[in-house]
Design a protein around this nucleic acid. Structure first.
Lengths: 339, 339
DNA sequence: CTGAAAGCGCTTACAG
DNA sequence: CTGAAAGCGCTTACAG
């Protein structure tokens, strides 16, 4: 991909050998300066570092990774990045891993099973030392392929009963229960749940429904929406709910987007929030505190999930096993004006 | 990072040599099957492909990249991914490049100049064949280092007067002018502009201001906000504008987020939109059509920017120079209820 | 159409 | 603390 019309440009980079020659040491010593500086003599160190600066040398990590069998690469598989709740996790993990000289390869799994298969091949071809999964890694061939690599596998944003390796997340069922309890305590008896077609959103719905049922309250639900969620889904669902008999007196949404949509539609239809209808979101996205009224929601510390994942990886690289197989970061109910 | 407590697991992957042995061909032939299948005999092809399937062989791209001096890697530098307007561009580029067997490395430049420097080193260490920049690549050392690699450099989301190499974007000045013209034509004479501290947002503001001035109208502006933008910024800015004498009769925001915030705050203060105050956003984010009233805004085809960037890279890899140095994807004024 | 051989730029026991 | 040497897993002229 080197541009033909610029082929005259000097494009060959200095190698470790050239640095070694300039510093009058062996290539091995330059390698040590780069990777284990503490074991090289101070004067040598300085001479080599000068040579590195002088030549503008940047190590070739393809060569380094091949020789050392350590790619210093972590693969993160997410459904998408356009409007993803996982982005904060990926971002904080990327920053934390960068300090340990690891780089994150983002891979998009959205777009169906065929794409997922080629995504996995593409990932494995780079020999990542760890693979972070958000969303679902379904059973089967792919999972077996990934596990077979021996790489650390971290599942995030959920607490699987049987983690593949290590998991960092929280209980979606518990979230549903907690919201149901709060809404019940506030006197709500005609709940509506908006869900999506993901296992985690469905787990929240189940938790909610079970907790309401235990209190003798039946829960209505809208057909699961596709992800990513949207304002439009919330508006649409609330409008539909109003069309069928008695409107709900509270709505538990599967995202703050949907919840904001419910807020807008309810207001347009003359409902007062929270008096006539209480609204609960999920995610505590940045805008949640700025809606009118401000959104009550469930806060997940996505950045913390990323930080913990990074720590696990770094510890493993240093030969320390993780303290446990499952890390529960919990969640927090944030009560604001809408419920 | 191989987990100590699982060290008994078979973690060595099959190599190209083993595939070759199984298929009873030379390693070179296996390599050809992988990279230039059209030049190998049909029976040989089949035998090798069987062996690949049987062994579950996945090529090692560190080795391949080292040997061929082609990393098949494209670096994308973005400020952040948590709430970034560039994500659609990155996503569409990633998908388009995947089909050509290129992988995108996402790098986060946010967090100041020191981080940017180490980000660039990290990128260069992987020897990407191309580097995509969104946001700003300021002059100086870093830019020189990047250009020095000989990699294709694509600047996106703007039309620089002197592109480093190739640029894909649109004119922010023209956007500002177009919005000003539309608002003026709608009879608005007390405009307010909300901007951010980025060169592109400032260019839009300048374009807007100049176009209004040419029509004899002065433009008020709020102090530039930091990115990423938010609902809160819009609410705050509109509240502040109302505190100082005559409120604006139209607001041009630097994002749909801000615009939505203005909508909310205006409504809360009893303003009618668009009668009392017209609101224009920027970006045509997914939620823009679902606000109340629906948001008038400027649509940018971010995915198209990504697709064009991918095409340029693929063409270059095939030895075809891009048709031109600057690709203008334009923009579209989307008139909905708010202006 | 296929193979033998050299080499890509590093790292890492091993020896001193 | 440092160097010589082998090797990581591929690709690619070159020769046939």
């Amino acid at each position: 991909m080197s541009p033909p019309h610029r082929s005259a440009v000097q494009t060959t980079r200095p190698t470790l050998h050239e640095v070694a020659r300039l510093a009058r040491v062996s290539p091995a010593t330059v390698s040590r300066v780069l990777n284990t500086p503490q074991i090289v003599a101070p004067e040598t160190l300085e001479r080599v570092q000068d040579a590195i600066k002088q030549t503008g040398y940047v190590p070739n990590l393809m060569a380094g990774g091949l020789a050392s069998n350590r790619s210093r690469l972590v693969a993160a598989i997410v459904p998408n990045i356009a409007r993803s709740i996982f982005n904060e996790t990926v971002e904080s993990m990327t920053v934390a891993l960068a300090e340990a000289n690891y780089q994150v390869m983002l891979s998009l799994s959205g777009g169906g099973d065929e794409r997922m298969a080629s995504v996995v091949d593409t990932i494995l071809a780079r020999r990542p030392e760890a693979i972070i999964v958000t969303g679902n890694l379904r059973e089967g061939e792919l999972k077996r392929r990934i596990v077979g690599t021996g790489a650390t596998v971290i599942e995030t944003w959920d607490l699987p009963a049987e983690p593949i390796d290590v998991a960092v997340g929280f209980s979606h069922t518990a979230v549903g229960q907690a919201v149901a309890q709060a809404l019940y305590a506030a006197g709500r008896r005609r709940p509506l749940v908006l869900s999506t077609n993901t296992p985690r959103a469905l787990a929240r719905e189940q938790g909610f429904r079970a907790a309401m049922e235990a209190r003798g309250v039946a829960t209505a639900s809208a057909a699961p929406f596709p992800v990513p969620t949207s304002l439009a889904q919330g508006r649409e669902a609330f409008a539909a709910a109003c069309a069928h008999g008695a409107p709900p007196d509270c709505v538990f949404c599967s995202s703050d987007w949907q919840a904001h949509g419910v807020l807008i539609e309810a207001q347009k239809r003359g409902f007062k929030t929270p008096e006539d209808v209480a609204v609960f979101g999920f995610g505590d996205l940045e805008f949640a505190e700025s809606t009118e009224p401000a959104l009550s929601t469930v806060r997940i510390d996505g950045a913390e999930i990323g930080r913990i994942a990074a720590k696990i990886l770094i510890d493993r690289a240093a030969g320390r096993a993780p303290e446990r197989a499952v890390f529960d970061v919990g969640f927090e109910l944030v009560r604001r004006g809408s419920a």
